[in-house]
Amino acid sequence: MIILFYLAAVIAILSTVAVIVQTNIVHALIYLILSLLAVAVIFYVLGAPFAALLEAIVYAGAIMVLFLFVIMMLNLGQHTRDEERSWLSLKGWVAPVIMSSVLLVQLINVLTQYDYELVPIRVGVMEVSVLLFGPYVLAVELASILLLAGLVAAYHLAKK
């Protein structure tokens, strides 16, 4: 189980790196789906099978298909790939990478001060649902209002 965790972690990091350095947008999208599926495996190992399912169905399924539709609509072909290659200069990478690395080192420095062990206990659909329809019912209502607002906004924005 623990080997599965580290394997999925390595796959997630490598495919995410591939997403941000890729020039072909469809390849980047496929790498992003691979990264999300690796994170879903990690969720399963950590004892959250419902979150793993949602990650695979909603993230890697629905949201990525939405991206694919828009890429098809925009018709980004060979010329955008060449354009993309000319945009990605080494000079533009240096400052963001240094700043993010400093942030990451600080974060890791803080996180390694604790050495808690995590023993995965399976928390299934029932426990999550009892919370969702009990004390957190307001969060569900707010999420539905947010989705409705998003639906209206997306319809209005994409209209000609």
Partner: peptide, 8 residues
């Protein structure tokens, strides 16, 4: 087996 929480 347990997973170190800081690694996650």
């Amino acid at each position: 087996e347990s997973i170190p929480i800081e690694h996650s």
